[in-house]
């Protein structure tokens, strides 16, 4: 006994503590009233909802503290629905808590494991029945079944093939070609170099061949941001510098990280920021990535002016725009 460690004993379920309503009929009556009031409030909520639906015009507004000027129909419908549901719930729970039996009950658990004899019988039955089907012996059937089951999943996959066309050259091309005019987005008018002062920006899209409707797919590839800097602010290699025109530089607006529109231009620091994942590009150094997850600079569009003085592209983008993809050949940037 002296070496035996004595543990604390489970004292068992504590004795039931009676509620007021269990012994005091007045308290029980009070609880009943509380529950009834809660259910009545729910009914009132439903009436409010219906009244708001029928009688309150949808262009009425009411000033409420914290919320400001708020649509009256919306708030009344909402509060009516809130009351009609919430109070049913509160009433039912209050009923259960105060008036329904609150004596805890004990139920026994049973082990999930089947009896040994049942398990043995199952294994035996499985072996016997499987054996009678020749599962162990007929290896030709087993293997061919394995093959067919392995392949059967392919047909739905193949059938999904026509969910879309093949990308072909889509990811590597845009609508910019030599001589494409830059049109202001959304006005659609061409733009001259003199239209931009130092520190000015413009969102542009390519002029499409006559009769072509601009789609969102076009915009998703073609969107370009024009920025005018002082020419001496650039720190570019001669080729990239020759792609600018009088301090105007053009970049694809589609982020090389995940394709969001990059257009937060800070004209003092010359930083371009993408609001999605905060990749930051330095415009003076050819949109080189200086912060954030993007791995490549924004592609630069070579621009000049045409005979009428309007800004045009010199050539298509020399690298694919937008996020990376497997087939992207990044050897030239």
């Amino acid at each position: 006994m002296s070496n035996q460690i004595e543990r604390f004993e489970d004292p068992g379920l504590p004795a039931h503590v009676h509620r007021n309503a269990d012994s005091d009929p007045l308290a029980a009556k009070r609880a009943e009233r509380q529950v009834a009031i809660l259910f009545m409030l729910s009914a009132l909520g439903t009436v409010l909802t219906i009244a708001a639906y029928i009688y309150v015009k949808s262009d009425k507004y009411v000033y409420l503290p914290i919320m400001g000027s708020t649509n009256l129909q919306q708030i009344l419908l909402g509060l009516g629905l809130t009351a009609s549901t919430l109070f049913i719930g509160l009433g039912a729970i209050q009923w259960a808590k105060k008036l329904m039996p609150d004596q805890e009950e004990i139920a026994e658990r049973h082990e999930f494991r089947s009896k040994e004899v049942d398990r043995d019988e199952l294994v035996a039955a499985f072996k016997e029945r499987g054996g009678s089907a020749g599962l162990g012996r007929r290896s030709l059937i087993k293997r061919s079944l394995g093959l067919s089951l392995g392949l059967v999943g392919l047909s739905p996959l193949v059938l999904l093939r026509d969910t879309g066309p093949l990308p072909k050259k889509f990811f590597t091309t845009t609508d910019w070609t030599a001589g494409t005019r830059l049109l202001l987005d959304p006005a659609g008018t061409p733009i001259k170099a003199s239209d931009l002062e130092v520190g000015a920006v413009a969102q542009v899209l390519p002029e499409l061949p006559a009769g072509t409707e601009r789609t969102l797919e076009n915009t998703g590839k073609d969107a370009v941001l024009l920025i005018r800097l002082r020419p001496e602010d650039f720190n570019l290699d001669p080729q990239k510098l020759s792609w600018t025109y009088q301090g105007i530089i053009a970049f694809s607006k589609i982020c090389t990280h995940m394709g969001c529109a990059v257009a937060l231009y800070e004209q003092q620091t010359h930083h371009l920021l993408c609001p999605c994942h905060q990749s930051t590009f330095d415009v003076t150094r050819g949109a080189k990535v200086i912060f954030g997850p993007a791995a490549r600079p924004l592609p630069q569009l070579a621009i000049t002016v045409d005979a009428d003085g309007y800004l045009v592209a010199v050539q298509p983008f020399t690298v694919p725009i937008g996020p990376s993809f497997w087939e992207r050949n990044s050897s030239n940037g």
Binding site: M67, T85, A92, I93, W95, A96
Partner: peptide
């Protein structure tokens, strides 16, 4: 029956009510 039916059933309406309240305000 009856406690949990009332409590769990009632709680559904409480969840609906609270969600509707958020939707309202």
């Amino acid at each position: 029956m009856p406690v949990y039916m009332a409590k769990a059933g009632g709680f559904f309406f409480v969840v609906f009510g609270v969600t509707a309240f958020l939707g309202a305000v």
